[in-house]
Simulated assay, not measured.
Amino acid sequence: MPPKRRSAVAKPAILIELACHTFMGATLGLGFAFALTQLDAFGISTLIEHSLDPHITFMIFVGVLTLSFTVGATLTGFVFTMMEER
């Protein structure tokens, strides 16, 4: 009896799941960056305002925070998806 092969239908489903996790991470990262810069509970917006170029500093801060959340959520989603496949 030949070994069971995985169906080709599972691969697009995995990519869709990873895309959903990526989108979720980007959304959470943007939301968290918005909360940190607008609420000013930790003085981050004050530090950004007193930098040499506040617009660039703001964009870098939001970009790095969003990227880190996005990568983290994508990798976590990949691990969860691979564990489900077992």
Rank of each mutant, 00 (worst) to 15 (best):
M1I: 10
P2I: 03
P3Q: 01
R5Y: 10
R5L: 13
R6T: 04
S7W: 09
A8N: 08
V9T: 08
V9R: 14
I14R: 07
I14Y: 05
I14C: 12
L15R: 13
L15C: 09
L15H: 07
I16W: 03
L18C: 02
A19L: 15
A19E: 06
C20Y: 11
H21G: 07
T22D: 00
T22N: 03
M24K: 09
T27F: 13
L28H: 10
L30N: 06
L30M: 09
L30V: 05
G31M: 11
F32L: 12
F32A: 12
F34P: 02
A35R: 11
T37R: 10
Q38W: 12
Q38C: 09
Q38A: 12
L39Y: 07
D40H: 07
D40E: 10
F42H: 14
F42L: 09
F42E: 06
I44K: 08
S45M: 06
T46S: 11
L47P: 02
E49F: 06
E49D: 15
H50R: 12
H50C: 07
H50P: 06
S51Q: 08
D53R: 07
D53C: 03
P54C: 03
H55A: 11
I56C: 08
T57V: 13
F58A: 06
F58D: 02
M59R: 14
I60P: 00
F61G: 10
F61V: 04
F61A: 10
G63P: 03
V64G: 05
V64A: 10
S68V: 05
V71Q: 01
V71R: 03
G72N: 01
G72Y: 04
A73L: 02
A73P: 00
L75R: 02
T76N: 03
V79G: 09
F80L: 14
F80Y: 02
T81G: 02
M83L: 14
E85N: 11
E85Q: 15
R86W: 13
R86D: 15
